[in-house]
Design a protein around this nucleic acid. Structure first.
Length: 424
RNA sequence: GCGGCUGUGGUGUAGGGGUUAACACGUCUGGUUGUGGCCCAGAAGAUCGUGGGUUCAAAUCCCACCAGUCGCCCCA
């Protein structure tokens, strides 16, 4: 019988990697709260139609989205969330958060699922830190989520946070831009690779982030969306840049940065990392003023970002940044079987109930002290507590500091206090 | 969905048609009477990814599949 193994694209997070994960989660939470964001958790499963309307634009396109969908058999289809924004907006509408003081600033952390072929920095289940500002169209809100994301990365010790930034207009001004772009690409169709011709046909904006060779030169002469913005979008973008400049936040206007769906408007931004593979965005977001309506809610402007833990960890590791270590276990209790074992069990319980972390040596039969000491060493504890017949007799415990120093006898009754004093 | 590379004990590797698959690290036990890190000794642990084929003989060659990895597509 073959062993059952992990599903493709899924990951176990082993104890050794835990410090990174805890660190990211704690930092994300701290920073989000400081920026005035409140946590909102949404279900992992949603009605498929949420993503159909909230993400897809056509059936062809939708099928390619590679979501995990379950047929409930009663006509309902439910989907493992492939992203957060649609669900966050759904929750905002469904719970009437538009009745609260606007804007509402929300964050969440959790897994999302996409059925894609895994590669560096891309898994079928990934963990995302997500922040949204709903009910506000002021470019200062765009700046706020960008700064939140930057601060999060900075506090993790991430170096070189530089925004890729673009404005892709709105349903009023974008069509003219797309026409101009299509015209330009059509004029150069002979120089386009097959995949890019296909993109031109299906989603022309996507040609802009083509990885085909020679596209840098070809696209250098292409029209830029920023030059086609309507007055409203242009003013929004101008103020966004002015605010970023005022903060001296480094950014690069990248006219090839796009989002190919209608309700994404105006601002688009990403932060790229080097050395983590082809999936280089550690942080990406933008404005989606049309999304709430698309899923059947009241018109609600929104801006936000998502950032995958896995990629950020890859980036941090690439930069040699290490997380703060988990706290050391305070003690390991070593004993000699018989009555000393009974007392050891009692002592371990005592310590743990008093808030002191403790290991206890397990041994069916009497195990050599050397062996137990070796274990204590491997467990990396602060102190080893030795509980033998003598100690039991005298109601005391031998306390050995594992980092060096003198071993001392401590009365059983004073042990708690002693440890609290010395392990702080 | 497509393509490149990879697949030997927990990890990293060596080997390479001929019968006990090697090494390092790790793990465990012991090195006399109750004491860690170094050192020493020993032990456990691999049907060499799976299935099929070629052969007297396959972990070694061939094919398929699976998995991993990197990339393409897609990227909400």
């Amino acid at each position: 019988m073959s062993t059952i193994q992990r599903l493709t694209g899924m990951q176990d997070i082993l104890p050794g990697e835990r410090p990174y994960w805890d660190w990211l989660a704690a930092t994300a939470r701290d920073v989000a709260l400081r920026y005035g964001f409140q946590r909102l958790d949404i279900p992992v499963l949603e009605d498929m139609r949420l993503f159909e309307r909230g993400v897809g634009t056509g059936s062809d396109f939708f099928v390619q989205k590679e979501m995990y969908t379950i047929d409930e058999g009663d006509g309902q289809f439910i989907t493992l969330r492939p992203e957060f924004t649609a669900g966050m907006v759904r929750a905002y509408i469904e719970n009437g958060l538009f009745n609260e003081t606007q804007p509402v600033k929300l964050f969440t952390i959790g897994p999302a699922f996409r059925r894609e072929r895994p590669q560096a920095g891309r898994f079928r289940q990934h963990t995302q830190f997500n922040c949204e500002i709903l009910g506000e169209d002021d470019p200062a809100a765009d700046v706020e989520v960008m700064m939140l994301g930057r601060q999060y990365l900075r506090e993790l010790g991430y170096r070189g946070v530089n925004f890729q930034l673009n404005s892709t207009g709105c349903p009023q001004c974008r069509p003219a831009y797309i026409e101009a772009l299509k015209q330009y690409l059509a004029d150069h169709v002979d120089d386009l690779a097959e995949v890019d011709r296909e993109r031109l046909r299906r989603n022309p904006l996507r040609v802009l982030d083509s990885k085909e060779p020679g596209m840098d030169e070809l696209l250098a002469g292409a029209p830029h969306s920023a030059d086609y913005l309507c007055d409203d979008c242009a003013a929004h973008f101008a103020q966004l840049r002015r605010l970023l400049d005022a903060l001296q936040a480094p950014y690069t206007v990248n006219y090839r940065l796009v989002r190919g769906i209608d309700y994404y408007v105006k601002t688009v931004f990403e932060v790229w990392a080097e050395g983590i593979g082809a999936q280089a965005a550690v942080f990406s977001g933008g404005r989606y003023d049309g999304l709430a309506e698309a899923i059947g809610g009241p018109p609600t402007p929104g801006v936000g970002f998502g950032s995958g833990f896995e990629r950020v960890i890859l980036g941090l590791q690439e930069q040699g940044v290490e997380p703060p270590p988990l706290p050391q276990t305070a003690v390991m209790i070593v004993h000699f079987g018989g009555e000393t074992k009974v007392e050891a069990v009692r002592l371990a319980q005592d310590l743990r109930e008093s808030g002191i972390s403790a290991w206890m040596a397990f041994a069916r039969d009497r195990r050599s002290m050397k062996s137990q000491m070796r274990e204590a060493d491997k467990r990396d504890v602060l102190f080893t507590l030795i509980l033998g017949e003598n100690e039991l007799q005298n109601r005391e415990v031998a306390v050995r500091p594992m980092a060096g120093g003198d071993q001392t006898m401590v009365a059983r009754d004073d042990l708690l206090e002693w440890l609290q004093e010395h392990s702080a």
